[in-house]
Amino acid sequence: MVLVVVFGYSQKKKNGTIYLEHPAIGVVNEIMAAFVAGDSDKVGTYLTDDFMAYNGFSTNKDDKGTTKEEFLKRVDFWKNNMSYLSMEPTAGSYPDALEYKESGVWVQTWDHIKGMHNKSGVKLDMPYHRLYKLDENNKIKNMIDYYDNDVIWEVRRSFSDRQNGTIYNHHDNINTVRKMMHAFEFNDMDTAYSFFADDAKFYSLELPDGESLNLDEIKERNRQLMEAYDFDSIDETGYPDYLEYDMQDAKVVQSWWKFRLTRKSDGKKIILPALYLHDFDEEGKIIRSIAYVSTKVLDAK
Rank of each mutant, 00 (worst) to 15 (best):
V155Y: 06
G238C: 08
H182N: 12
K114T: 11
Y128V: 12
K301M: 07
F195I: 09
K101H: 07
K251M: 14
N138K: 06
N164L: 02
V105M: 08
G238T: 06
I270F: 01
E282L: 06
S294K: 13
L215M: 07
P273W: 02
D111M: 07
V105E: 02
Y242E: 02
G104H: 00
K296T: 08
K64G: 09
V177D: 02
Y100H: 15
M52S: 08
E30G: 05
T176D: 12
F186L: 09
Y54F: 15
E70P: 04
P23F: 00
D161K: 11
R178H: 10
D63I: 07
N222K: 00
T59P: 00
N60V: 05
F184W: 00
L215E: 05
M87R: 11
W256P: 11
N164F: 04
D125I: 14
D49F: 03
L72G: 07
W153T: 14
V151Q: 07
S160C: 09
H129P: 00
G65P: 13
P240N: 05
L131W: 04
P208V: 02
I25M: 08
N55K: 04
F77W: 10
L207R: 02
V5C: 08
T237N: 07
A300H: 02
D279E: 13
H129M: 08
D96H: 11
V43E: 04
T90E: 13
E217P: 12
T295C: 05
G56D: 10
E30Y: 01
D125K: 13
N175C: 01
D50K: 09
H117L: 05
V36A: 04
P127H: 14
Y19F: 15
N173S: 14
E99A: 11
G267K: 00
E185T: 04
G8I: 07
L3R: 05
N142L: 14
D232R: 00
K301A: 15
V36S: 04
P273S: 04
G284F: 06
W78F: 10
T166R: 08
T17G: 12
G267D: 08
E136Q: 14
Y242P: 05
H182E: 11
D246G: 05
S103W: 08
F159P: 06
D232V: 10
S255M: 01
V293N: 00
D150R: 09
F231D: 08
L272D: 03
M126E: 15
T191P: 03
Y147R: 13
H129E: 10
F71R: 03
S265Y: 04
P208M: 01
L275V: 12
E154I: 01
L124E: 10
L243D: 04
